[in-house]
Every structure is written in C-alpha cells, then in structure tokens.
Design a protein around this nucleic acid. Structure first.
Lengths: 216, 216, 216, 216
DNA sequence: TATGAATGAGGATTCATTCAT
DNA sequence: TATGAATGAATCCTCATTCAT
C-alpha cells in the first residue's frame, strides 16, 4: 500500500523540475542549519518560495525529502569522493606499483571518508538518527552502503597479493564501519580525544589488519 | 536557570524511593518494548501505578528518566559485564600467564560488549538517538564512556609488554568504538552480513592491531 | 484495533464529568447551529471554554462526539417521546378499549415521530449523512433503531386481534421507515407538498395496511 | 454573482463535447467506485485523460459534475426504467383490462424502483448525502423528483375508478417516498431484515392503501 | 505527597480551484 | 483550448508539562 501511494508529482515541465530543485535546496539549507527534526514542511516551502501544497506535490511527506537528500548525499559521497579516491589510487599504482603504496591507499581511503563526512555533519547526524528510527530510511542507507562497500572491495582486490585477510567482504565491511564510526566520533560526537591521534591509530589498525606485515 | 528548574523531588522516605523505583521500572519496560519515543509520560505513570503528576514529582521531564535509565544501563554494563570480564581475565592470567592469553582476552572483551548490547537493543538504539540529539544526554554518555574506557586501558596495560601500540589511550578508544559499532551493526542495524563473520574479523583486527604479532 | 484505541478519558472526578458535559453541550449547540461538518473540534473546545487537548481527553475524535450526541438524541427520542406515546396509548386503552382506539394509536405514533424529529432537524440531517457515510455511525444507529422497532412491535402486539398483517416485524419495520422518511421529507427536505396532506395520507396508509378494515 | 461565475465552457465543437463526455464518464466510474467524496478532481481529470485545468474548463467545480451525473442518473431512471414500466403497464392493460392488473401494476412500479436503485448504490448514497448537504443539489433533485412524481400520478390516474385515495398527488408522493426509502434501506443501509419480507409488505401496504379492497 | 484534569503550541497533510504558459 | 504547476486555507490530533484540589 505504501508503494501504491507514491503520488508525488513527477515534473515534466522545466518549471516543475526547477520547483522541485528549489524545494530540495531549501530543505538542504534548513536541514544543514537547524537539523531535520527542527525543520517543518512549511518552513521548507517558505524558504523555497513556494506554497506548502507545492511541497506535497513533489514529496509525499517530509521524510521523503530527507531520503532524497540522503541519497544525494551518498551519491555525492560516492561519486565525488570515493571515485576520486579510486582514481588517485589507480594513478598511484600506475606510477609506482608495489607494496609501498599500501599505506598510501589506506590514507587515501580514510581521507575520502573524512571529506565525505565533512560535507554536512548536521545532516550526517540526522541521517544517522533517521536510519535508526525509520525502516524505510534504513533500507535506503543499506542500499547505498552496498555501493560504497563494492568500492572498497574493488580496491582491496587490487591488492590481492598483499592481503592477509581471507574474508574480503567481511573485512571491507569492517573497514567501512570502522572508518565511518571514527568519522562520526570526530565530526558528530566531538569526542574529547584529538582527531589526529584517533586517525593515526585508525590507519595503523587498518594496515595491520588488512595487509601482510612485511611490506613496510 | 537550569539549576533552578531542578525541582524534582529527592525522595528520602522509603515510600518515595519506592515510587521512584516503580516509575523507573515502568519506564524500563515500556522503553524496552515500544522505545523511548513512542512511550509517553502518561503511559509510564499508568504502568507505574501512579498519577501523571507524580511522575513530575520525581523527574523534571521525560528525558530525565531516559538519562536515569541510560545511567543504570551503563552501570549494569560496566558492573555486571565489564568487571566480570576483568575478573575472568585476571583469573586467566593468574592461572596461565604469558602471551598465549592475549587472544583469549580479546575474545572476552568482545564477548562482554556483546552481552552488554544484548540486554536491550531497543534501549541501546534510543540511547544512541538521544545521544545524537541532545547535548545533555551526550554528556552523560561521554561521562559513562569514560569509565568503560578506563576499564579497557587498565586491561591493556596488563599486557604492556606485548603491546605494539604506543598511544594506549587512543588505541583503547578505537578498540571501544570499533567493538561498540560492530555490536550496533549486529544488534540494531541487522546488517546483512553474518554476525559471526564480522565478529571473527573484529577479533582478528584487534589482535593484529593491538598486540605484537609473534605471540601466537 | 479500533477497540483498543479507546483512550478517551473516563472522568472520575466531578470536575472531569462537568467538563465532558460542557463539551457535549457546546457540540450540541454548534452542531445544531452550523451543522456537524462546519464545526471543528477547536470551535467545540472554545465554546466549551476548554483547551483543544481537553476535547481529545474525553473523545477520541470529532466523530465520537457526534456519536455520543446521536445516542443521546435517540435516547431522548425513545425515552421522552416514544415511551410517552406508549403511556398515552395504554391510558387510552384502559379508558376506552376496543377497535375505536386503533386510528388514535396510529395518530399518536405519527405524532411522536414528529416530535422526535422536531428536536433538531439540523442534527437529524447530519446524523443521516453520518449514517450514510460512516460504518461505525451506521452501526450505532442500527442499534438504536432496534430499540425503537421493539417499541413499535410491542405496540402492534397490543392490537393483535385487529392486525391484518402476518409478518409483524416486517410491518413494524416498514411502519418505522415510512414514518421516519415522511418526517425527513417534511422537516429536512422541505418538500413542496403541504405537510398536512402527507401526514393525513400517511395515517391513512398505515391504518389500512396494518389493521383490518372493518373497524372504523 | 452566481450567474457571473458560470464560466464553464459550453462546448459546441465535437471535440469539446467529447472531452466533456470523457470527464463525465471518468467521474461516473470513479464516483461509482470510490464515491463522490473520496474522489478528487485531479483523479477525474487523470482518468479522463485530460489536464486538471481542462476539468475546470468544462465544469465550474466538482459539485457540478456531481449534479450532472445525478441528472443523468435520474434521466436514465425515468427514461429507461420508469417509462419502460409505463409501457409494460399499458401493454398489460391493453391485453387484460380490469381490476386484476392492479396488484401487477404495483409490482411493476416497485420492480422499477428496484432496478433504478440497483444501477449504482454508491452513487445513490452520495447523491442522497449531497441532497442533504447542498441547496443546489437539493433543488436539482426536487426538480427531477417532480418528473418521477408525474409518472406515478399518470399511472395512478389510469386506475381512477379503483382508487380509494382522494388526494392523488399526496398519495403518489407517499408512494414515491415509501418505495424510494425501502430501496435505500435494502441497497444502501443493508438493514438486517430480509429484503423479500420488506418488499412483500411494501407491496401489500401500497395496494391496500391506494386501491379499493374488493378488487382481488 | 498524590491525584488526574487541563493546557495549547505545534506540525503534517489535503484538495478544490486558479493561473501562467 | 489545453496543460499541469501552484496555491494556501483549513483541520485534525498529540503529548510534555503544569496546576488546582
């Protein structure tokens, strides 16, 4: 039934597309500023310069903009950040193949996670909350996480010969979760420990875990 | 002003203490069952067998019961679970000193995290959300996390000679966060990957990271 | 599930009972004046001199006050009007037994329906609409109609010897519906035909239908 | 002002007429299926394959389609059903004149009402509601009812010599209302009593009321 | 201390109708 | 003529918290 009620207008004219975009941008600004939960649909519509009804013409409800934003967020993260990382790693491997690049690769990955989380910590936080509290959002995130995981697995497999782990999928999952969590602690929870110390250990941990030790 | 508003009664008489306890128990049951956000104060009061007004005689607001419960939660976690772990480790070390206990220790630690998170995943989840959304709760959790961290540091220092990490505090923090996160993925997010695979890798990762490699 | 959510407060203290009564009275006035559909819960609360929330403390929703009012309406109709009619008929039969009272009885019944519908035509109309549009209200009305039907059957059975109909239940039902409908046409639809003519025919029709013809 | 606002296009070109027809058909389907109130203008337009705006080019508002449909409904009822009945009665009278046809005539009339109401109970119900709630619709229905009434009077006058009622107009009105109401109870309210019993009594009542008794 | 009634801001959503293109 | 995007008033209901008794 939830599927059937997907009544949101699919804009065909340029004007409609623009309006939808205006709403998304307004939501982005408001969510980044006040957070998802303190923003209401009327605010979003007003900020977008449209009527409340228009909001509901393009989105079934507030959650749906949230999901849309989370998707874009992930997309940006994967397209701009992770794929960029892959490129960097490939370039590096082309120039300078061999075990010496391993640590650099890990650095790059961590760096890309950092960049990803720096885009909008507020949104990251609220996304985290939504994922915890809403099944639909959880599924969206799971779906998107799957893509990131594939990236990581792909990267790891480029180093097949230097891996010390057998279960690459589980290792990649762990690598993903661990990096993600560390970024959360740094960007969202503002844990007392200095970010640098944590990041240094993170890098060290990953290298020692994933790769055989006699490389360095 | 926050100070002034702390009107909640501090029960001294046995009866008052019992009433407060009844409220906490009711809240615990309800939060574990329906979650913090879907439980309202009236329900709690009703379940506790007191009037709504009485709830506010013992707690300033709903959040405060949440905090109280989170504190107890942590307390249980540290007292019943972690301290029990420490004991197990000490016993093991007494009986069988040396590097061979390292991996067992890590297993114990992971196991204790698992037990801790198994108490009430629903509450864990809502605590997570509250921590993300409320500064006061965040501080409470930070405080309690500090205690757990101390435990871990204490344990690690028992193995001083076998440690490969320099920054023990950061390592312990990482160890804490990583274990916590993995439990969340397993207990709360129900990630698709099998728990066993993830846990096996977690153990492997921690061992390789924390301890020198020529032990096993 | 609808049953389970019967959260409406059951007032225990005098104050609560009074408030509920105030709300019902306000609703009655507003419904009679503007009609059910043009009245909203906020209006009712305001008129009752209470907060919106109080409205929802005593009623799950607007429909529920409507139902409550419909019930009271019926109750008034049956208690004050119909039972009064029964009494009049009994008195008449006691004084002056025999077939001559038949027509008078029918007159009394019609008169009682008229009185019943004269209480608040606006509410009658809205009740009619609600019955048509809402299953729950329909059931309430069916239930209450059953009581009126029993009254009618009871009356008819007092004239057992003069009845020409076999299926008394069906006859009473028809008698009920026909009288009701005629009142609706007169009080609600304001049909063009003069009420007197219609009522005269109604009486004539019922007498000829229900009773043997050689009485008069 | 009401006059001024009658901007609805009066289609003269074939295309316009077709579009209007498409809208009416779509509305018919939707109203019969989900009812008038749960159908919105957008749905109607979509189902008709036109834009929302086009709807308002042909109708001033949603109610107007309702009225149009009610008119057609009545027209179908009178043309296809009632006039067909008149024909059947005329044929019968031609073949077999005399008092024996009286009961058959009543049967035919009741049957025609039944057929009429069977076309679309959902629409009947909503028409009923609209008539109760909207003055304009009430007037339309009154107008159309007048036509049916004329039919009935016409029929009754064919039996002038057997009638026992004096006020034929009032009698016809009563006959109309009574039959209509019984059909509502059967088709819309689904009263508990079996339709057959009610219909049998209805027929009996009408015969005894309208016609002299020594016919059968 | 305890009770339970009262508060009321606050937010999501709908849909008939209008309007710009 | 036709399109489909835009409008925005209107309404229901929740629940943490306060208050009168």
């Amino acid at each position: 039934m939830a599927e059937l009620k997907n009544m949101a207008r699919l804009p065909v004219l340029k004007r409609g597309i623009e309006t939808k975009e205006k709403i998304i941008n307004a939501a982005w600004i408001l969510f980044s500023d006040k957070g998802y939960f303190k923003t209401n649909t009327k605010d979003i519509a007003t900020k977008a310069g449209v009527a409340t009804g228009s909001f509901y013409a393009y989105f079934n409800n507030k959650k749906d903009v949230g999901i849309e934003l989370i998707r874009r967020f992930y997309k940006d993260g994967t397209e701009k950040v992770l794929s960029h990382t892959i490129k960097k790693i490939s370039d590096m491997l082309a120039e300078n193949p061999g075990p010496k690049t391993v640590r650099m690769t890990v650095k790059f990955i961590i760096e890309s996670f950092k960049e990803f989380h720096a885009i909008s910590p507020m949104l990251q936080r609220d996304a985290l909350v939504l994922i915890l509290m809403d099944e639909e959002v959880k599924n969206v995130s799971r779906e998107e996480d799957g893509k990131i995981l594939s990236f990581l697995i792909e990267i790891l497999q480029q180093y097949k010969e230097y891996l010390r782990v057998d279960d690459v999928e589980a290792a990649a999952t762990l690598l993903f979760r661990v990096s993600d969590e560390v970024m959360h602690r740094i960007m969202i929870h503002n844990d007392e420990i200095e970010a640098e110390r944590l990041l240094r250990e993170l890098e060290d941990m990953i290298c020692n875990y994933i790769f055989v030790s006699d490389l360095k």
